[in-house]
């Protein structure tokens, strides 16, 4: 990869990211929220978290894939549901995924 290519990608990616994160708060603020807007915001977390989990553990790029990480996160999910603390479940997810990969060679 040429230095020019790397710089081009990094510079443009930085500008695009700043614009994506900045445009909403630039346009919106300084006045109280309508209750409906608040309700939509409150529901962004479950919608996006669910989508992040699905795309990270059930997909690779544009394909549906089940992998060792799927199993690890599924085990963590069961533990979380039963009240296991966050860091314990996260560690278990990594151990299960890594363990399965080690076994599968």
């Amino acid at each position: 990869m040429s230095t020019a290519t790397a710089l081009w990608v990094i510079g443009a990616a930085a500008v695009v990211t700043v614009l994506i994160k900045g445009i909403g708060p630039f346009a919106l603020g300084g006045k109280p929220l309508s209750p409906r807007f608040e309700a939509v915001i409150a529901l962004l977390a479950p919608a996006l978290l669910a989508a992040l989990v699905v795309t990270q553990v059930l997909a690779d790029q544009d394909r549906w894939v089940l992998g060792a990480d799927t199993a690890g996160v599924a085990v963590a999910g069961v533990l979380f549901w039963r009240g296991t603390p966050m860091l314990v479940g996260v560690a278990v997810a990594a151990l299960v995924a890594g363990g399965l990969r080690a076994v599968a060679g």
Binding site: L52, V53, V73, W81, G89, A97, G98
Partner: peptide, 26 residues
């Protein structure tokens, strides 16, 4: 190889489950 790619989705799942407990709409 150590399964560390499973950590972030596991974090997200933990946070998601907390959201699910907020009610039926969530």
């Amino acid at each position: 190889a150590l399964g560390l790619d499973a950590m972030f989705p596991a974090f997200f799942l933990f946070l998601l489950i907390a959201e699910l407990r907020r009610g039926r709409v969530a």
